Amino acid sequence: MLKVIFYTKEVCSLCDDAMALLHMLQHDYPFEIEERDIYTNDEWLERYQLLIPFVKINDITLDCEEVNIDSLEEAIKKYARE
């Protein structure tokens, strides 16, 4: 099954919005969400601190400025049926 890796942190309204979009898309596409709190790993914190919410779907990455319903659906559709 397709795995969507979702980098986030507590108290992040943009992250909450992005997660809501992912949950909406789960109604149409089979995938699981692996949520990763950037404050639990120094490497994630350094890499994604200014980019969250950050989504990784296989070789596609979307940072906070790129995450929207269209970009998420396009990326998920590319891999969900494989």
Rank of each mutant, 00 (worst) to 15 (best):
M1S: 15
M1N: 13
K3F: 08
V4C: 12
V4E: 10
I5L: 12
F6K: 14
Y7I: 01
Y7R: 01
T8A: 09
T8Y: 07
K9M: 12
K9R: 15
V11W: 14
C12R: 04
S13E: 14
S13D: 09
L14C: 07
D16V: 15
D16I: 05
D17N: 12
D17F: 12
D17Y: 15
A18S: 06
A18Y: 10
L21A: 14
L22C: 05
H23K: 15
H23I: 06
M24I: 11
Q26D: 02
Q26R: 15
H27D: 08
P30D: 01
I33Y: 10
E34P: 08
E34N: 04
E34F: 06
E35R: 09
E35D: 09
R36L: 05
D37P: 02
I38P: 03
I38F: 02
T40F: 09
N41H: 08
N41I: 04
D42C: 08
D42N: 07
D42G: 12
E43I: 10
E43T: 10
W44K: 00
W44L: 02
W44H: 01
W44A: 00
W44M: 02
E46A: 08
Y48C: 03
Q49Y: 04
L50G: 00
L51F: 01
P53G: 01
P53R: 06
P53N: 06
V55F: 13
V55Y: 11
N58Y: 13
N58L: 06
T61Q: 10
T61N: 12
L62D: 08
L62P: 03
C64P: 11
E65G: 09
E65D: 13
E65Y: 14
E65W: 14
E65K: 15
E66S: 05
V67C: 02
V67I: 11
V67T: 02
V67H: 01
V67N: 02
V67D: 05
N68F: 05
N68Q: 04
I69G: 04
D70M: 12
S71V: 07
E73G: 06
E74F: 04
K77E: 15
K78R: 15
K78L: 11
A80M: 04
R81V: 12
E82F: 13
E82H: 11
